[in-house]
Write a protein that binds this DNA or RNA. Sequence first.
DNA 1: CGACTGACCTCGC
DNA 2: GGCGAGGCCAGTC
Length: 104
Amino acid sequence: MKKASNFKDRVYAIAAKIPKGKVTTYGKLAAIAGVPGAARAVGNAMRTNKDTNAVPCHRVVGSTGALTGYAYGNGLATKRAMLKKEGVAFKGERVDLSTALWEG
DNA sequence: CGACTGACCTCGC
DNA sequence: GGCGAGGCCAGTC
């Protein structure tokens, strides 16, 4: 392990810490990882992620709570289904950050 | 090492 | 709140 840069490893660790029924944004995740503004890098780390079981990348959404992408299952459809199943509040096609936002 | 890509964010209208 | 353009960061080829 420890092959990936500290940043990526950090992102995975944080993503794995997200409690069930909660979600966070790429920007927040990047900030918590120690690199505010690296939201795109976070998305990259998630996309390259292969351990969905250990890294619930589906718990990471956009700043507005909109599901941006998912590399597994049926994409956003699966992502949304998983979040709903975990008890995340939804606003139509977007997550209700007012109640399901995890700030760490 | 150089350039392109990507699951974003912020600013302005 | 939605649409369009610019910019930042890390990873991969």
